[in-house]
Simulated assay, not measured.
Amino acid sequence: MLQITNVSKDMGEFFLDSVSLEVLDGEYLVIIGPTGAGKTILLETVAGIYEPDSGEIRLDGREITDAPPKDRKICMVYQDYMLFPHLTVEENIGFGLKSKKVPKEEIAEAVRKYATMLNIAHLLHRYPGTLSGGEQQRAAIARAMVMSPRALLLDEPLSALDAKTREILRRELKSLHALTKTTVIHITHNFEEVFDLADRVAIMNQGRIVQIGMPDEIFRRPKDRFVADFVGATNVFRGVSSVDDGIAVIAIDGPQIRAHSAEEGEVYVSVRPEDILISTEPLASPVRNSFPGTIREIVHVGAVVRLTVDAGAEFIVALTRQGFEETGLSVGDPVFIAFKATAAHVFPGGNA
């Protein structure tokens, strides 16, 4: 539905470098990346606030690269609401429709529809200054949605809210998307929003999209060291891989890890902490990776317990609190860790 092809824009500190992206009709795409990666300028270029230096943007097959924002049927919502303080909530939400000379009855119906969806129908008579942050953001989203946009662009819409309000509004966004099927592109730094909302997630760095895929794929199978570090991957080891009969043997500083991969030479290999089994006895099940070790540290993180095991290299193992209590393990205990070759993800080692 939305096609971005080789779009570049240089604004000095912020820039886009040949960004290409396709967004499907009705998709909820979340974009993450470090500050300065180009996320906001990408959305603003799609919205028509900036004209790209090169490249092409198409919406429903129609080129909109040079089209003014008002002709794009794309609406953008920022984290700071940008409501008109002298207008009521009802007038704010209906502002865009009024400027398009839509009949009053239609405006009132559309305003009531989206205010109800976002649970602010009882606030239509109020002014923005009397609302909480969450209520103001609901009004800003409703103001965009009454325009029936082909794409809704959200620039960190929940980041200025407290944790409880973020959780509630996240659920409301999910419900709104399910009801309207509007195509959404949402920038965030919050991984909970990625897993709760995204059909796909794109990661940006230095003006480029460096990986795109399903949320679980991005977090479990990062394509390079930057992505692995950004999504907080643990148990990332650098080594040298040799492949025999479809199985890569990666010599790291310590044990050798076996994985299903065709990558050879210098590589990284990562294993999710929750994919590693831990026991006081060697595991009877046939797994390709099984190492003896010693528990060096135990850290309680909410409902999860993370154990650092020295098995030649240091592995982080994650257990539920109940699972940990059942093991009775302590620092200094000898243990065995094991994980399948399919749990080891190998990616090129070019990015140190």
Rank of each mutant, 00 (worst) to 15 (best):
F95Y: 15
F95H: 06
G96M: 11
G96H: 09
G96L: 12
L97Q: 09
K98M: 14
K98V: 14
K98S: 15
K98Q: 14
K98T: 13
K98R: 15
K100A: 14
K100Q: 14
K100E: 10
K100F: 12
K101G: 08
V102M: 15
V102E: 11
V102D: 11
V102A: 13
P103V: 12
P103D: 15
P103C: 12
P103I: 09
P103W: 14
K104D: 15
K104R: 15
E105C: 05
E105P: 12
E105G: 04
E106P: 14
E106V: 13
E106W: 04
E106M: 13
I107Y: 03
I107T: 08
I107H: 05
A108G: 05
A108H: 07
E109R: 14
E109K: 15
E109W: 00
A110T: 05
V111L: 03
R112Q: 11
R112F: 01
R112K: 14
R112S: 06
R112W: 01
K113W: 03
Y114A: 07
Y114C: 09
A115P: 09
A115H: 02
A115R: 03
A115G: 13
T116I: 07
T116Q: 11
T116M: 03
M117V: 10
M117P: 08
L118H: 09
N119K: 15
N119I: 05
N119G: 08
I120R: 05
I120K: 00
I120N: 01
A121F: 02
A121E: 12
A121N: 04
A121W: 02
H122N: 04
H122K: 00
H122E: 02
L123W: 02
L123K: 07
L124N: 01
L124A: 00
L124W: 00
L124P: 03
H125D: 15
H125M: 05
H125R: 07
R126F: 06
R126D: 07
Y127T: 10
P128S: 12
G129S: 06
G129I: 11
T130Y: 05
L131G: 07
L131C: 10
S132M: 14
S132P: 15
G133T: 11
G133C: 09
G134Q: 08
E135Y: 10
E135K: 07
E135V: 13
Q136W: 01
Q137W: 00
R138L: 09
R138S: 05
R138K: 10
A139Q: 03
A139S: 12
A139W: 01
A140M: 11
I141E: 05
I141R: 04
A142E: 02
A142N: 04
R143I: 12
R143T: 13
R143H: 11
A144I: 11
A144W: 02
M145V: 07
M145T: 04
M145K: 01
M145L: 12
V146Y: 02
V146R: 00
V146S: 03
M147T: 13
M147N: 13
S148P: 06
P149F: 01
P149C: 02
P149V: 02
R150E: 14
L152F: 02
L153C: 06
L153I: 06
D155T: 06
D155S: 07
D155K: 06
D155Q: 05
D155L: 06
E156Q: 07
E156W: 00
E156V: 07
P157T: 03
L158N: 05
